[in-house]
Design a protein around this nucleic acid. Structure first.
Lengths: 137, 137
DNA sequence: ATGAGTGCAAAGGCTTTGCATTAGG
DNA sequence: CCTAATGCAAAGCCTTTGCACTCAT
């Protein structure tokens, strides 16, 4: 699946990229590049950044922005499951959660209507809850 | 209102801070620090960063994270009106939009339930629509 | 062969910080 | 007065980039 997306955008599925994707598959939640490099010592930092950028352009991974200074990555949601994030203001950590399909659908239609009104071409939404995780409270 | 919040957290409402808040009040949407400094030449960049941090801790302004490398700021939503953002993937620009009070309320209760299940102490949510703005399309 | 991918090191760019000076209460 | 705030410059830190080398096709 990831391989197909890479090929589609004219990219190879190299050992480094495989290692990164495997690591992301293992991760239960979005991880920073530093964490990723630590788990996959065969991939040096600059290659990790470059490959994550390639994977993102191929829609295989997704970059998650939280409140701290670290970019986090996760597998593309259509390779996993559509979900949202609990973002801890204290440690910057991210936990996934999902909403019912009914509510998701309702949300999508409401958002589509809002974007339409502003002549905005929407392709995704991002719904995060901010607060304090159980570890930090 | 802003002044009260600053005093509450033991901070002064100085000329620089006033200028920043006034500029934010004028801005129709979240603005970058660079834009802010440009509009308020009396405030140098480092003071802008420091003061925005103070104002954020006092809950007077709110830091908005988009997809580019620039932090954006807006007045705290309870000083304006609760709203959400259309974030352009191309230029990083942000436009505000609102949802109906009914839907907002529904959303809040759904999110509260989800956070509860993860033992997460939620205090806010952030709902952004990603896509392409009319300028960039 | 030949262009994409990689590693290392250096550079970029937004943001933060040290320090001497100024101003608010 | 005396602490907080300010300006300037320098440093930090995540991220990107240049360049030579290696690998896949």
């Amino acid at each position: 699946m990831v391989e197909r997306r890479l090929r589609r955008s004219g990219q190879r599925y190299t050992a480094n990229r495989r290692a990164l994707v495997d690591a992301l598959r293992e991760a239960p939640q979005p991880v920073t590049v530093a964490q990723l490099v630590e788990v996959t010592p065969s991939v040096v930092q600059s290659s990790a950044y470059r490959n994550l950028a390639v994977l993102e352009r191929a829609d295989a991974v997704h970059r998650v922005v939280t409140t701290d200074d670290f970019a986090r990555y996760e597998l593309a949601q259509d390779l996993t499951e559509h979900h949202h994030h609990l973002v801890c203001r204290s440690c910057g950590g991210v936990t996934d959660f999902t909403l019912s399909p009914e509510f998701e659908q309702r949300l999508e239609s409401v958002l589509a209507a809002a974007a339409e009104g502003d002549d905005f071409d929407s392709d995704d939404h991002r719904l995060d809850v901010l607060g304090t995780c159980s570890n930090c409270s």
